[in-house]
Amino acid sequence: MQTFQRSVTVNGERFERTVEPRLLLSDFLRHELGLTGTHVGCEHGICGACSVLFDGQPARSCLMFAAQAHEHEIVTVEGLGTIENLHPVQQAFREAHGLQCGFCTPGILTTVTAFLERNPNPDENEIREAISGNLCRCTGYQHIVDAVKLAAKKLQAQE
């Protein structure tokens, strides 16, 4: 069986691992690196729960192979903030009740973080468009939209 030495930077930390070609990036993050905050909901690219930032851009980790991540930078939900020191986007989600079961949340947080960097002051339609690739079965999206609005305010106040 083919294997590859791979070097990947995740949340600022460099990891060296040996992987087989078919190992999905989502499984690599979760089971090889133990970063289980990235969730797997469909493994066909629709639900968005596994979205991570790949070189700063949101991408489905279930639709990439770990072998492809060589010398690339990844940010997962674990890289945003900590329990003691939540990222403003995480804070906003808490205050606006932008999560219920929390399963889809990591993919939404990474997607939204990148979105707000590009568009710091979005309107409701732009927000709905930005998270249209993240399915949530609990919230009906309303509190998520509210959370993104609140996060935009928090980030602007920070600057």
Partner: peptide
């Protein structure tokens, strides 16, 4: 372009 799938798919 905006009609093709979702933002996180369009990045790849």
């Amino acid at each position: 372009m905006q009609k093709i799938a979702y933002p996180a798919v369009r990045t790849r």
